[in-house]
Simulated scan of single mutants.
Amino acid sequence: MSTLLYDEPGPVTRARLRSWSVVALLVIGLAVGLVCWRLWGQGQFEEDLWAPFLDEPALRTGLVGGLVGTLQAAAMAMALALVVGFAVAVARLSPSRVVQAAGATFVWFFRGPPLLILILFFFLAFPMAFDIDITPFWALVLGLMLYNGAVLAEVIRAGVLALPRGQEEAAVALGMRRGTTLRYVLLPQAVRNMLPAVISQMVILVKDTSLGFVVSYGELLRYGNTAIQVLDNPIQMYLVVALIFIAINMSLSRVAHALEKNPVASGLRRRRTVAESR
C-alpha cells in the first residue's frame, strides 16, 4: 500500500529500522551510564546535595514561587502574543498594500533582533526615553509578546494561505467581504492545521521566560540561581528546574493534542464553516 508521498516500508526496511533503533538506544544508554558513573565518582549523588529538596520547606516554597512567576509571565505573554499575532496576520493578508507593508514591517522589525534585546529595551531604554517606569514583569512580558507575536503572525498567515484557493473564491462568490471570509471561513479551518506550530511556539515562549533573570524578575531559574549560592548544588538544582520546565511543556503538548483530537470542537468548526458557506 502506498501514500501520496512515499511507499510504506517493506519487511527488510522495517527490520533495518528496528536494528538501528536498538543500536541508537544502546548508544544513548551507554552515554547516560557514562555520565552517571562520572557524577557518582565526583560525589554528585551524595544525600547532602539532594536532601534540601525534601528537608527545606523554604526551598520548596521558593521553587513554587518561582514557578508561579514563570507561569504568570508566560500566560500573560501567550495571551497578548496571540492577539498581536492574529492582528498582524490579518494585516499581512489584507488587500491593501499599505496595511500589508505595515504588517510585514512589524514582523521584520520584531522577529529579527534577539529576544534579550527587546527585554532590555523595555527595562532600560524605554523608561529613559518616555519617563515611564516598567516593572521587570512587564519588561519580560512585552518583550515576549512582540517577539512571539511576530512569529505567530507568520504561522497564522501560512496556515490561511495553505488552505485551498477554492474556499476563498466560494466565499467571494457568495458575496462575503474579505473580513467576513477570514473570520468565518478561512481562520476556523486554518486553526486546527496550525495548532501544532502554535503550541510549539508557546513551548518556546515558556522556556524564554527564563530570560527574566537579566531584569531581576522572580521566575524559576532566577530563584534556582539564588538557591545555588547558598546550597552549592548547581547540578542538582538545574536538573530539578529543567524537570519542572519539561513537565510544563509536556502538559502544553498534551493540551494541544487533546484540542486537535477533540471531535466536539472539530464538529463545531465544520458546522460553522458549512453554515456560513450556504
Rank of each mutant, 00 (worst) to 15 (best):
V98W: 14
I244N: 08
S96N: 06
T209F: 03
I235T: 12
L211C: 08
L120H: 04
V191E: 01
R271L: 14
A139V: 04
L161Q: 14
G175Y: 04
L39N: 13
G103C: 10
D133R: 15
R272V: 00
P188I: 05
V214R: 00
N249V: 15
A150T: 07
L182M: 14
I119D: 09
T180L: 10
R177Q: 09
F245V: 05
M237H: 06
A190P: 01
R183D: 02
A170V: 05
L124H: 05
V99D: 01
L80I: 13
V99M: 09
L34I: 09
A150V: 09
C36N: 09
A102C: 12
R14M: 14
G166I: 02
G85Y: 00
L259W: 12
M76Y: 02
T13D: 10
A258Y: 05
V264Y: 06
R60S: 09
F86G: 05
R14Q: 14
I244T: 07
V83C: 01
T13A: 15
N193V: 13
V64K: 08
Y6S: 11
G62F: 00
A153V: 02
A162K: 00
V203N: 12
G212F: 03
M237K: 00
V151S: 02
T61W: 13
F137L: 15
F137Q: 13
F121H: 10
R254I: 05
G43L: 06
A87R: 02
A247V: 07
N225F: 04
R254E: 09
Q201E: 12
G218S: 14
Q236N: 10
V203W: 07
T105V: 13
M78R: 01
Y6D: 06
V98L: 15
V264M: 03
A153Y: 06
Q100V: 07
Y217N: 04
F86V: 15
P114R: 07
S96H: 07
V27S: 05
V12Y: 00
L146H: 05
P113W: 08
A58E: 14
V84P: 03
L120Y: 12
P188N: 04
R97C: 01
Y238S: 04
A190W: 00
D208A: 15
L268V: 14
G85I: 01
V255N: 01
G112E: 06
F130V: 13
R272H: 10
L120P: 10
M194P: 02
V198Q: 02
G112I: 01
V22Y: 11
L120W: 08
W20V: 12
A24C: 12
R278C: 05
G212N: 07
P136K: 05
S216P: 00
L268N: 07
V185L: 12
V215R: 03
E8V: 06
Y184C: 01
G41R: 12
L116I: 15
D7F: 01
R157V: 00
L221F: 05
L93Y: 02
D133K: 15
Y223I: 13
V84D: 01
P127C: 11
P114N: 11
V141R: 06
R60T: 09
G159C: 06
T13L: 11
I132W: 14
A247H: 03
T273Y: 15
F110H: 05
F122D: 08
C36Y: 13
G65E: 11
D7G: 08
P263N: 08
L243A: 15
V198C: 08
G218I: 02
L25M: 12
G159V: 04
G33C: 08
T70P: 12
L59N: 11
V98Y: 10
V84Q: 06
A102Q: 03
